[in-house]
Design a protein around this nucleic acid. Structure first.
Lengths: 152, 152
DNA sequence: CCTGAAAAATACCCCCA
DNA sequence: TGGGGGTATTTTTCAGG
C-alpha cells in the first residue's frame, strides 16, 4: 500500500461512488490503474466494503443503548455469541476487560422493544449472570473513520 | 419512501458502487428512475453517505477502548464536546444515562497512545471529574446496519 | 502503468400516465 | 408528479505495449 492507495481511500471515504476517471485525475493516475488498485484493496481486505450509511431515525430507530453482559462460565460463550450474530438489533459486540464480559450496542425502536430483546432474546440464554443497560440519550459523534496517514 | 426505495437501499448497503442499470433490473425500474431516487434519498438525509469501511488493523490500529467520562458541572460540557469533535481518535461520543455522563469509543495504535489521548487531551480539560477506561479485547460483531423492513 | 478502441453506462431530453 | 424511452456523451473495460 503506497501513497496512491492512501489517496484513493481518502476520496472513496467521502464518496464511494466517485468515478474512476475523476478520481484518477485528482491523484494523477489513469482510470484503469485506479480501478485495478481498488479491486486489489478489496481483495486484500484493506477496503472491507463500499457501503451506505443510513439515518436511523428515518427508519423509526429512536433508541440506542449499551448493554453489558456477564457470563457465568466459559462454556456459555459459544451459544451466546451465536445468538448475538443472529440478533440484528445488536449492532456491535465487544469482548471487554473489566467487570463485565461483553459490551453490546443495540439499536431499536423504543424502550419496550429493548426490553423485549434483552429479556426474551439475551437473558433467556443459559449462563447469563447479569446484564447492565445504559441508555444513550444523545449521540454527539459517530464516525466510522479513524485518521489516515497524511499524504503530501 | 416506498418499497422501491427500500429495495434500492438494501442493494446499496451491500455495494455502494452498484450500477444504476443493474440495480434497476433487479428491482424493476429504469436506470434514470433509480438514479433520481438515490439523489432524493441523499437530499432527504435518509442516505447519510456512501462510504468506505476500512480494516483498522491494516492501518496499525490495534487497540479499541470505551472511555466513560464524568463531568463536574454542566458548563464544562461545551468545551468538552468541542474537544471531542477535534480528536480524530475518538470515533464515537454518546451522552448516556447512569453513573457517567459520556461514553467514548476510541481507536488507536496501542495502550501508550491511548494513555496519551486520555491523559493529555481529555483529562487535561477543566471539569473532568473522572474517566473509566474499558479495553476492548476482541470485537465479535461490528455492523453499521440495523435491520430494514422486509419488502416482498 | 499507460494508451486507445470497443463496450457499457449515464445524463438529458421529451413524452406519457 | 414520477416513470419510461431514445440518443448523445461520458465512463468503464479490455487489449496490447
Amino acid at each position: 500500500m503506497d501513497s496512491y492507495d492512501l489517496k484513493i481511500i481518502t476520496f472513496l471515504k467521502r464518496d464511494a461512488r466517485m468515478k474512476w476517471s475523476t478520481l484518477a485525475q485528482h491523484i494523477g493516475l489513469s482510470a484503469p490503474a485506479v480501478a485495478e488498485r481498488v479491486a486489489r484493496l478489496q481483495e486484500q481486505g484493506i477496503i472491507r466494503q463500499l457501503t451506505t450509511v443510513l439515518d436511523p431515525s428515518s427508519f423509526d430507530y429512536r433508541l440506542a443503548a449499551f448493554v453489558a453482559v456477564s457470563l457465568e462460565r466459559p462454556e456459555h460463550r459459544a451459544p451466546f455469541l451465536k445468538r448475538i450474530q443472529e440478533l440484528e438489533y445488536v449492532l456491535e459486540c465487544h469482548h471487554v476487560a473489566g467487570d463485565d464480559d461483553y459490551l453490546l450496542k443495540i439499536r431499536c425502536r423504543d424502550t419496550e422493544q429493548l426490553d423485549e430483546i434483552i429479556t426474551y432474546h439475551i437473558k433467556e440464554l443459559a449462563g447469563i449472570l447479569r446484564t447492565k443497560t445504559t441508555i444513550i440519550m444523545r449521540t454527539e459523534k459517530e464516525s466510522l473513520h479513524f485518521p489516515l496517514p497524511e499524504v503530501d
